[in-house]
Amino acid sequence: MNWKHGIISAIVLIAVWQLTVTLTGVASFILPSPLRVANALWHSRALIAEHAWVTLAEVILGLIIGSILGIVTAINLATSSTARAILRPILVFSQAIPVFALAPLLTLWFGYGMGSKIIMAVMIIYFPVASAFFDGLMKTPSGYLDLAQTMAATQSRELWHIRMRAAMPSLGSGLRLAAVYAPIGAVIGEWVGASKGLGYLMLLANGRVKTDLLFATLIVLAVLTVCLHLCVDILARRLAKDH
């Protein structure tokens, strides 16, 4: 995405938003104007930042742990037919359970702190990462494997030097998805039960009819997600370099 296009889109969106508020005369607790939201963002910046740090920490930790677990699972599935036979049905079945439905249970088990939110983020990104990387590991060009076989490559070296390297673009795709999903997991966890985080702050603002603060928090969350996506996108491009 070109950054100039992004700025133009944002200006158009804000203009439409302001126009809607002006033309309909809607009450500010239903839909605050962009100016009111900017005002709330500025005046509550310390409060929002305090909660944003918590959410960001949950998301990043969730992303790291979930990605590592996804990568390890993919390697196990790709190298062991026994693992495939046992784990695959479990993985597919686990996807039939909406992770969101488990949020109350996770809060019950792991408490109101960051732990339950990190686990939510981990659970939501684990499958896309594992699935994308596994797919890449199973699609190594057959010519590469033929060459490795005639060169008497050891299985572990073939995996490390060829299959994993060839699967890097697929891993990058999985990580891109994970960067978008992880904040959703963390925020849903915060909605169900938390004392900190942007999700908690949004609920709090909503309950007190501080709709401008709710919008300001939402915007910060969106900006965080976009920044995270951009960072992961840079990483994914590096992984896919030369492919």
């Binding site: 033929d146 060459l147 050891t154 070296r157 030097h161 390297r165």
Partner: peptide, 28 residues
């Protein structure tokens, strides 16, 4: 036996030198 195919099968992420050495790398 050594094998050469229609496709050069050079690994795009390796330099030419590393590609030429790949057999030893893969065997350890």
């Amino acid at each position: 036996t050594a094998y050469m195919a229609q496709n050069d099968l050079l690994f795009p992420w390796l330099t030419l030198l590393d590609n030429v050495c790949i057999g030893a790398t893969l065997r350890g």
